[in-house]
């Protein structure tokens, strides 16, 4: 099973009591606010989940795998995610079949 925006909207409808329209818009706004912060160059810290950070990568040599032709990979800014200790712990416990601690 894969969790999608539609699943998150359903949860906001059931648990928070938002109407269907608001629930869908809220899920969209949640991710849009994070995208906007990253676009501004800010780190996003969601306690209990993890941090989204930006890394500036310098230009590096690359190759077209089809033709073998050398082409430089341009300098770019990329997003990295670092799971929090809590998320790592919840995942470890979940995957080991035990219950996460409170």
């Amino acid at each position: 099973m894969t969790l999608t925006k539609a699943d998150l909207a359903d949860l906001l409808f059931e648990k928070v009591g938002l109407n269907k329209r608001e629930a869908k818009d809220m899920v969209e706004a949640f991710f849009e606010e994070i995208r906007m912060a990253l676009e501004r160059g800010e780190t996003v810290k969601l306690s209990g989940f993890g941090n989204f950070q930006l890394r500036d990568k310098p230009q590096r040599p690359g190759r077209n795998p089809k033709t073998g032709e050398e082409i430089p990979i341009s300098a770019r800014r990329v997003v990295t995610f670092h799971a929090s200790q809590k998320l790592k712990q919840v995942v470890e416990q979940g995957m080991n079949g035990s219950q996460p601690q409170a």
Binding site: M1, T2, L3, D7, L8, L11, L12, K15, V16, V27, F30, L46, G48, F49, L87, V90, V91, Q93, G94, M95, P100
Partner: peptide
């Protein structure tokens, strides 16, 4: 709710 659902999903291996 959104953050919990995402964490739960990963904890199930989803």
């Amino acid at each position: 709710v959104i953050i919990e659902a995402m964490a739960d999903s990963l904890a199930k291996g989803d």
